[in-house]
Design a protein around this nucleic acid. Structure first.
Lengths: 336, 336
DNA sequence: CTTTAGCACTCCTTTCATTTGATTGCTAAT
DNA sequence: ATTAGCAATCAAATGAAAGGAGTGCTAAAG
């Protein structure tokens, strides 16, 4: 357990380093925080904090920098999560309520807004379809060559898609399909709709490939669509001094370029809260020099997707978490 | 008009510079190309080529680098467009014919494949909806609260979307809608479906906002979807020496981050051919240090989207154009 | 026992001069 | 028309020196 002065010093060092990106010296800290102790005293505290692993030095005669453990302690114990200005509140509200929402996915708008307010890179992804279960699947014939498929999942998400046929279909066939597909797919995960099913259907049903294939293809296509990745503010990263190292910049772009990696990152977070992963805490090797903050956008029980920001370990956790909390709240009440 | 030796020198300098990213010296050129002239002679030719603007120096005692005019001459007159290996042909064929196509947009697959083969950054975008005309719009009622809208455009592209209502709709209403919407929208560009239309409909039709709004919103949404931007291989850029300058890297990421800019770039190309824009030839100020090569993916008269690669001016135009030509051909014959 | 002043020591950063080497342009010879 | 040869130019690498910021430790003061 840290005494109050150590807490103060640690918090101040994290915040100062987040601001300046320069190792923080004892002298600078005393001045900045108007501490009633001399720099020598602070130096002693800093030495202690280093001993227990919360601070690091870049070289023997440099100021101190928070370690990952230090950031973690800061995030868990020291940070204020109401670090959001009136202007920011106003800006966010306007964005989320603006007419754009009517066209665009709200999850995307939220991701973009977070990026704009925090100046970090934001990513978002639609609800994870693969883990959802099929509650019901329903086919409606519109005309002999055009059929509508409606899938309802246990997350209360509804997906529809139109299927075109090369040959005529009749009502009787559709009825059979309704029966057969539900028989096979009810309470199965969405990913069941894949090659094995296709083959099963060929065997089981008397319809030709020409009928079955477009159905399966089209459904698969629509399921994929929801998992679309959205990315905003990649350029912001380049304003940060850590990205002056080409090594780091390259790693960063590499991460963003790998779909699966970003999907992993976003989907690994817990459903209920704001998740913070600092450096090596990330399960992905590639992210060991970055920090990630995510949260899941839910409306009631409906999963609407996950939003995350990716930035340097020297991230303004206070700001990011505050903004995310506010947006999360806003999203929930907005959809009531 | 250049004599053959000058052409040879220019071509060799472009290709050598593309390979090495280092200014090409007279001595290196003689050696590399087994020229039967001394370096002094080549120096004279290089001086001439510089005088007429095809070559440049980075400083007084450096080797030569192609100017934009030099690249342009190379692209127009000197380059071979069959610069594609057996392995590459095989790889591309496999990718385009693989099962992935069944799920994924072929335009995206093509863009990704180009990026993989050329190691440049590829972008693609769906068919430009805004310029298309509405040929017919048709509503089909599935149940009292669910309606299907089908839009057919003059590019023979069909778009469908499902519309949910908060109140019941009857067949009579749908008939009226069919009449009214077609009346108003036939032969209009797709972008007509926007706010002005919405207001017109409120005035003209007796239906409530609750009916009209979901229709317009949903149609707008589906129109947007097609213009989705796809990006692959942004990380490749960082393997190129020109991106060792943070300035350049930052510009590049900035460009990719601006949706509208990339959309502009892709849509400015001519429909029929492969378009090459070198440096300042780009109409976008931001692209003045980059080159862009694009082509439109068409199937018969149907516009399927545009694919482009964005890279340094020191681009392997021969490789890029060869690969694009091959893919373009392949896409056309595949869809027959 | 806690705090602090003072100072030696460390090491990064910047600057400047020097050297090295590659390449050109030009002149004069072939 | 071609080429050998050479002075001139400039980037890039190397290394020495100076300056400065910051720490750790010791000894004294509170």
């Amino acid at each position: 357990m840290l005494n109050d002065r150590k807490k103060h010093v640690l918090r101040a060092i994290v915040e100062e380093y987040v601001n300046t990106a320069e190792p923080v010296s004892s002298k600078a800290l005393v001045k900045k925080e108007h501490l009633k102790y001399s720099s020598a005293t602070i130096r002693n505290e800093m030495a202690d904090l280093e001993k227990i692993g919360y601070l690091e030095k870049t070289h023997t005669s440099s100021g101190r920098v928070p370690s990952e453990k230090g950031y973690r302690y800061y995030v868990d114990e020291l940070l204020k999560d109401d670090n959001i200005s009136v202007e920011e509140v106003k800006y966010i509200s306007e964005k989320l309520e603006s007419k754009i929402n009517e066209i665009e996915d709200l999850t995307k708008v939220a991701a973009r807004t977070i990026s704009e307010v925090t100046h970090y890179t934001a990513v978002s992804i639609g609800p994870k379809t693969k883990t959802q279960l099929i509650k019901e699947i329903k086919f409606v014939l519109i005309n002999p060559r055009l059929m509508l498929a409606i899938i309802i999942t246990n997350f209360e998400v509804m997906k529809e898609t139109v299927i075109k046929f090369d040959e005529d279909i009749n009502e009787k066939q559709v009825e059979t399909m309704n029966y057969m597909f539900n028989q096979k797919l009810k309470n199965q995960p969405l990913e069941t709709i894949d090659r094995p099913l296709e083959e099963y259907l060929y065997d089981e049903m008397s319809y030709s490939v020409k009928v079955i294939k477009p159905i399966v293809e089209q459904i698969k296509k629509v399921l994929r669509q929801d998992e679309q990745l959205y990315l905003k503010g990649a350029n912001n990263a380049f304003d940060l001094p850590e990205f002056n190292s080409l090594e780091v910049a390259k790693n960063f772009i590499n991460i963003l370029d790998k779909r699966e990696l970003v999907e992993d990152v976003l989907s690994s977070g817990l459903a209920e809260d704001i998740n913070v992963y600092i450096g090596e805490e990330n399960s992905q090797e590639e992210l060991k020099d970055f920090s990630v903050v995510t949260f899941r956008h839910k409306v009631g029980d409906k999963d609407m997707g996950t939003i995350g920001i990716i930035g340097p370990k020297r991230m303004d956790y206070s700001k990011v978490i505050s903004v995310m909390k506010y947006i999360s709240k806003k999203l929930n009440e907005g959809e009531k």
